[in-house]
Amino acid sequence: MSNTKLARRAGTGRTGDQVFSGAALGAGVLIVAILFAVAMFLVIQALPTFTAPRSESTGGEGFFAYIFPIVIGTLIAAMIALIIATPIGVAVALFISHYAPRSLAKGMGYVVDLLAAIPSVIYGAWGASFLASSLKGPYQWLAENLGWIPIFAGPASGTGKTILTAGIVLAVMVLPIIASLTREIFLQAPMLHQEAALALGATRWEMIRMAVLPFARGGIISAVMLGLGRALGETLAVALVLSSGPLIASWIRSGNQTIAAEIALNFPEAFGLRMHELIAAGLVLFLITLLVNVVARWIISRHKEFSGAN
């Protein structure tokens, strides 16, 4: 003990550090382990589907012929939801962060957060009982006037329970996610750069375009991807709202189906190969979400040099 002054003092030990780093490491390992376990479960349970003879699958033409239409249906519903929800969500967030007077902004922020907390079954019930029937008229109009566009081809559904209605319900569900996440990002946009833009003679909208939106770009993409995750995986609302059927191009006729709703509606009675088939459908959904996230990461990282993080 030649250098006692610099030796560790008793009582000021590193226990806290060690506990915390252990807990953090444990949490990190756990999340990877869970993800791996889920993936393994899906793969193992799905395997029999791929080895079974084609004629035994639902529809009798093999798993891929079965899954392809509902993958497309899932993507269409999610795409409709994002096309509607992204611009509105970003606009709501911008209004709250940069346009509304402070008192109003606070109230609106609460309302948006509240919307995100409403259970999906309520959205589903609202979509099925109210929205679908009120959209019958507009669908009729679309079929008559824009029917030459394949997605609006008639005859319009008599119940309004179509993929477009499901997409609109999903949009309402995804909207608060996008709005509240992007609002947080917009509020963090550096004042320094906003003032720089204003001092150059920018109007408020120009300032937002120069100093807020570029800063928030990655955040907006992340928020949209989270919204997409919810739209892809949403089960109950779609199951309640959509009167499902085979894949068709028209958005205003009954038909189409999404993976999540397909699994939910059929799983309780499924056994044997049918169950493996539905789990395989889950695996496909899992892969789609994974792919979406990878693409989102790639889009964000492509502009790293200009991201403002350096």
């Binding site: 750069h193 200009f306 991201s307």
Partner: peptide, 10 residues
Amino acid sequence: FQRPNPFPTM
């Protein structure tokens, strides 16, 4: 301004 503030995304 006090702190240099070029637009980082430009």
